[in-house]
Every structure is written in structure tokens, then in C-alpha cells.
Design a protein around this nucleic acid. Structure first.
Length: 505
RNA sequence: GGUCCUAUCGUCUAAUGGUUAGGACACCACCCUUUCACGGUGGUAAUACGGGUUCGACUCCCGUUAGGACCGCCA
């Protein structure tokens, strides 16, 4: 029952990501998908997106759309999928019902499967009883003795039935690329349900059929699927299919070390996008959960991940999703982003908060003041804060001061260390004098001009610069006062200094 | 309860019989500095426990403990 290595190795590698569109794209799915993608590309093969929408109640088109959008945003591009031409389509399982029907009938005809007429209540009662007696809760095979003819008649008479696979009592072995040799005692599975009817396939059956027909060579999925593998292999064998290679990835865990899920506030990928995480950061971070390149290098672009990836360097134990590390990666990638590109990424955040409105490609209107601001000035502002951003959305809180007439802040914020109000008022006066006399508002000039004056007057730098910076920004933390003054301009800077005096009373 | 798996700093991990157990995030200190951030320097911090095997064990074996996954007419 070993996977036929000789055959798969000579074939072109094909992997697949097969999500069910029953929810938004989540981090755990992204990791599975990413590793499928990385391996396929590493091997020069194809990566297939297959939509497993056989759960009619829960599958929704908007979820499929969210999954596709998320993957595109991450740069995980499929070679074949629902909306691409591929010779192995259709790629949505609900469009493949004829295929499943054909194989379901084959299984039924060849007695690898049979109709089961047991009611759910009956099954549940039996299950309870078995568990109570300390047994694995498996189906007792009651309906396996019903003749095909009788089954047909009862179906024709409208009796409700599901299709069960006839499990053989034997050990199923396979060599997992991550787990090594794995053995399962199939007798512990019982006869499991593979379809609700010939046109309503269930996961294990549909996946086994599709993976074969789509010529998938390597199935890369989460560890939670490990025990599905022998079931799918039995179906493959019964249908005369060969077996693909398997690689079961360790799980991504929440802070409580259980499988990452909704109850951990595990947000969908769209959430990270909205917060301003960059796809490079997310990919890099997720790739390093359960895999490492074996070197001390931490930053890897997608092409570099593809180049370095291997199952040999995947570990078997789960890893906790640690957002602090993601934040670090994101800051690193934000700092690496070219300024123009970063500005473009940030503009939607300003628009979203209604701080600016677009006039043309290179010109915007500041909502609060009606003044125009061009792309170059926006870039200048961004340049001041690029190294301070953890996430793109942080730009708003950091730079809203440039998009209002006057900042608002508490009077005491003007106090540097143990200064008195009188001292601060004196400092503000000095700043007004300095900026009024400035021949230029270029930041280098301003800096030299002010710092020299402070030194000549034998003043304390902090006692001048802190109140100046706070008067200009209204914030506890910000970029330096001179670079901010340059952008604000003389009028607005002086206006804010005078406003500070008014606050002081 | 059954089957399977896992166990190195708080977290992500390296070290596949011989290292002062390495790196990264986080944290702390110092430097830079008006603030924040960036950057730089340094620091705290781990082989779950108990037995073996071996000259030598994070590494191999056994047990204990702790954790996890699965056990659907979901995928």
C-alpha cells in the first residue's frame, strides 16, 4: 500500500489548495495554501485551486470570493482554478456532480460501497452505547447485508439512504513527507459515509476522486486531515487509482495551544490587510511557522521562500501564532518599501478617515482646511514616519496633525520635565521669535538657526524643543520639530505657537 | 474513552552523540536623542521529569508527566 514513488517522481508536480467556501480566508488556511504553492513552484510544477463547495448549506459565493481575493493579495497565484482555463476542470465540486455520480455507482456496483438506511437517531443511540462500553464509535455494518436489489427497491420507493464505504479490516500504511511512516488500523474506522446520495458526495470521496482526476501528485494539508488519509487511500484503491504523496503540516495554534480558530479571535486575512499588514510580512511570518531555512536569516521574499522551501525542514509540532513577531516583520517590510510606493499604499487610509479627498492622481484636498496637498508633500510626511510605523493604519494617528487647522492637546503636555507654566510660556515666546526671524523654513536652516540661538543664549535644548514640538504637533511622540515646521510652513507654525500661548493662558 | 502525535528561553526556532546549548521576536539596561521610532551595544531567559545505552545524551531507548489532533450524513 505504499505510495508509488517511481510514478509520482517522474510526473510534473501538482499540488492543490482545496478550501470549502464556508467562511472567510483564515491564517491556518493561508499556511496550508502557501506551503502547497511554495512546493509546487519550487518543483517547477502547477498549483491548483479547487473549491470544495459540497456543503450546500454553508457554502457561499462571497466566501469563495474572499478566499480568492485574499490569495491574490498575498501573491499566491494559482495556475488552475475556478476562473482560469485548465484541462482538469471544472474546479468547483458542485460542477462535478456527474463525475462523482459515475464513481459512486461504480463503487456501489462493485460492492465497495452500499446503501445504508439507518436513521440518524438510531445511529446516535448506537454510538452512545459503544462509547459507554469503551469502544470506538463505529458503524456496526447493519445495512451492509442488504442486497443490491432490495436496496434499489427501497430507494425507488423513496426511502432515505446514504452511501457507506465498505472498509476492509487491514492496516493502511503510507509514508508522509513530514510524519514519516504512518500506520492506521482501518478496522477502527468502520464503514464510513462517502455520500448522502449519488449526487451528494462527502469530503473524503470527492477529494479522492478529484485528486486523482486532477493528477495531484502531492497533497499538502493540515495535520487534522491525517486520519482522513487512509480513508481516501482506501477509496482510491477501490476505484483503481494510484496514491499521491502526502505531507501533513503541523497546526498553527492560538495562545492556549489549541488549533487556531474563531474562539482565539483568529481574524480573517482581510482583517490583516485592512490593519495595514503587508503581504510580504504575512507570507514571511507564516512560512516560518513550522518551517525554517536552517540558517539564521529571517527575511525572505516569496521567490526566496520558493527557492529555500522543503518538507525536510518542516517540524511536526504545532506553533503558536505570535502577533508581536508579525508586527516586527511588518515594520521591517514597511521600512523597506520605496517611499512612493508606501505613500500610495497609505493614501487610502487617509481617504478612509476622510482626512483628504482626491482631486487628481497627484493632488488632494485636505478636508478640514480645503487646502490642496500634492503627492510630493504627502510623501514628505510619510518619509518622516516610515520608520515609526508598525502597520499602515498607524499613519493616521501619527500624522493627522498635518490635516487639521490646530491640534488639540492638554496644557500639561507642553511641560518638559519639571518646567513651570511660566518657563514654558517663555520658551514659546522664544520659539515665536526664532521662527518669525527665520529667513527660510527649510528644516536644515531652521535647525541650525534655532540650535545656535539656544546655545548662544545658554538655554536648555529640551526646554525649548519639547514645547516647540508639542505646540506644533499636539502629541507626546512625533517626528522632530524642524522637519514638521518645514511642512507646516511659517504661517501655520506660528499660528500653532500662538495657540499654545493661549492654552497656557 | 479509543487511535495517533508532540515536548529546547515567554514565543518562533537552530544544534540529526562531543557547542560556554546558537539566532530572531518580546522584555530590561546603556548609547544616540527634545519625544517617539530607527540604529548600535550589552543583559535576563530553555533542553518537562525519572531511568537506561554510551567514554560522552538536547540528540538514541523505556517510563512518567504535560499538551495537542482526530474519532460527522462538515471540510
Amino acid at each position: 500500500m505504499n505510495s508509488d514513488l517511481s510514478q509520482t517522481q517522474s510526473k510534473k508536480v501538482r499540488t492543490r489548495f482545496a478550501p470549502s467556501p464556508t467562511g472567510f480566508l483564515h491564517i491556518g488556511s493561508v499556511r496550508t495554501c502557501l506551503f502547497n504553492f511554495l512546493y509546487a513552484k519550487k518543483m517547477g510544477g502547477d498549483f491548483v485551486l479547487r473549491i470544495e463547495d459540497t456543503d450546500k448549506e454553508r457554502s457561499k459565493p462571497e466566501f469563495e470570493e474572499d478566499i480568492k481575493q485574499g490569495l491574490k493579495w498575498l501573491g499566491i497565484i494559482w495556475d488552475e482554478g475556478p476562473d482560469t482555463n485548465g484541462k482538469f476542470g471544472p474546479y468547483r465540486q458542485m460542477d462535478r456532480l456527474d463525475i462523482y455520480e459515475k464513481y459512486a455507482r461504480q463503487l456501489l456496483d462493485q460492492s465497495h460501497a452500499y446503501y445504508c438506511f439507518c436513521s440518524e437517531e438510531e445511529l446516535e443511540a448506537k454510538k452512545q452505547e459503544m462509547v459507554a462500553r469503551g469502544h470506538a464509535p463505529i458503524y456496526d455494518g447493519k445495512c451492509s447485508n442488504i442486497s443490491k436489489e432490495e436496496a434499489q427497491q427501497r430507494i425507488a420507493a423513496g426511502e432515505k439512504a446514504v452511501i457507506r464505504f465498505k472498509t476492509q479490516n487491514k492496516v493502511i500504511s503510507f509514508t508522509d513527507l513530514i510524519w514519516g511512516k504512518v500506520d492506521f488500523d482501518a478496522s477502527l474506522f468502520g464503514d464510513f459515509v462517502i455520500a448522502k446520495d449519488t449526487r451528494s458526495p462527502l469530503y473524503n470521496f470527492a477529494a479522492a476522486v478529484d485528486d486523482y482526476l486532477m493528477e495531484i501528485t502531492h497533497i499538502v494539508r493540515g495535520e487534522e486531515h491525517l486520519s482522513n488519509t487512509p480513508r481516501q487511500m482506501m477509496i482510491q484503491s477501490a476505484l483503481g487509482f494510484g496514491h499521491p504523496q502526502y505531507a501533513h503540516l503541523p497546526l498553527i495554534l492560538g495562545p492556549d495551544k489549541t488549533k487556531l480558530s474563531k474562539r482565539h479571535n483568529a481574524e480573517p486575512v482581510g482583517y490583516y490587510k485592512q490593519k495595514g499588514y503587508l503581504p510580504q510580512a504575512l507570507n514571511n511570518f507564516i512560512a516560518f511557522l513550522g518551517w525554517n531555512p536552517g540558517t539564521e536569516r529571517e527575511m525572505f521574499s516569496m521567490p526566496e521562500l520558493i527557492n529555500e522551501f522543503s518538507f525536510e525542514r518542516c517540524r511536526k509540532s504545532g506553533s503558536i501564532f505570535n502577533i508581536a513577531k508579525l508586527d516586527w516583520y511588518n515594520g521591517m517590510y514597511i521600512r523597506q518599501t520605496p517611499l512612493d510606493k508606501l505613500t500610495e499604499l497609505l493614501i487610502p487610509y487617509y481617504q478612509e478617515k476622510n482626512l483628504i479627498e482626491k482631486i487628481s492622481d497627484r493632488e488632494f484636498k485636505i478636508t478640514a482646511t480645503n487646502q490642496t496637498i500634492d503627492f510630493a508633500t504627502l510623501s514628505l510626511i510619510v518619509s518622516l514616519y516610515q520608520e515609526r510605523l508598525v502597520k499602515l493604519e498607524d499613519i493616521i494617528e501619527a500624522t493627522d496633525l498635518f490635516f487639521v487647522e490646530l491640534p488639540s492637546y492638554e496644557k500639561d503636555l507642553l511641560l518638559f520635565k519639571d518646567m513651570t507654566y511660566q518657563q514654558v510660556a517663555n520658551s514659546i515666546d522664544k520659539c515665536i521669535e526664532l521662527l518669525s526671524n527665520a529667513e527660510s523654513f527649510q528644516k536644515d536652516y531652521l535647525q541650525t538657526h534655532c540650535l545656535n540661538a539656544i546655545q548662544e543664549a545658554n538655554l536648555n535644548r529640551g526646554q525649548i524643543l519639547w514645547p516647540l514640538r508639542v505646540a506644533l504637533t499636539g502629541k507626546k511622540a512625533s517626528a522632530g520639530p524642524f522637519e514638521i515646521a518645514e511642512i507646516l510652513g511659517k504661517d501655520l507654525s506660528l499660528k500653532r505657537l500662538n495657540f499654545a500661548k493661549k492654552i497656557l493662558g
